[in-house]
Design a protein around this nucleic acid. Sequence first.
DNA 1: ATCCATGCAAAGTGTTTGCAGGTGG
DNA 2: CCACCTGCAAACACTTTGCATGGAT
Lengths: 147, 147
Amino acid sequence: MNNLSVTEKFAEVFHHAGVKLTHQRLTILEETMERRDHPSAEMIFRSVRNRLPTVSLDTVYRTLWLLDDLGLVAALAPEQERIRFDTDPSPHHHFVCTRCGDISDFTDPRFDRLQPPEAVESLGKAERVQVEFRGLCASCQKKPVSQ
Amino acid sequence: MNNLSVTEKFAEVFHHAGVKLTHQRLTILEETMERRDHPSAEMIFRSVRNRLPTVSLDTVYRTLWLLDDLGLVAALAPEQERIRFDTDPSPHHHFVCTRCGDISDFTDPRFDRLQPPEAVESLGKAERVQVEFRGLCASCQKKPVSQ
DNA sequence: ATCCATGCAAAGTGTTTGCAGGTGG
DNA sequence: CCACCTGCAAACACTTTGCATGGAT
């Protein structure tokens, strides 16, 4: 019964946003939500294809960005963003704008001293810690609706 | 005199790594280190081109990855890594392997409650915080020298 | 003199877009 | 039934690679 209510919740989110819940989208959503790694579009594409052999990669991309818009998944980099380099070797932290992708630095000694919890010890050897706040940057807040 | 010693320090790092400090590399390094934004390869390419009109984009790429290897800059995504999606809507944090790029989740209520310092308030409206530990994951530690 | 690095061009990869036909609400 | 969505293919953008020349130690 939990399954049912989860699907219903999805349906409601879709309905509220005024987008159609096609069976491609539902399949992509299901395959996506059941993962606990951090899959690329390609990885999701492969698992969706097992259930829906005719689905296309571009539909997976479009659907993932849709889910990102709806807040059901979180993209780990803003759309169309390419690799960037951090040129500041001293310890600092980031504020990332979820709309324009701009990354700003700030410093806070409290954060520099954060120690990895036990859970991390088993994952690997932590050499560096960085705190990331995400939200709308000042300049994107000023133009609320514009693209 | 500080300028001089900084350049000397670079020269020493290069020498110690057994790579040549060509004037292309020095120019790229200088243009890179003087930025405090988070430039893409293309952005660095444009500023280097002002001083060195014949430099090619692929040299900039190769040099940036070299600087990353030397620890002089930090790439904000592992090499060849494409966009990934976080499918877990609940609050959690990341351990990122700097070699293979694998992202693992862990939870820690202490981190969920971190408040943005004043410096962040002026940058934008923080909606979410995520702590990221970086280092070698357990499986990469086991194969220390491998490709 | 030798090896490494560069520039060029082409290939490669991941991602987006235009369009015609199909489908959900 | 109409607008939205899909699949296909082509376009696109960013990044990497092969190779021959040039340059540094």
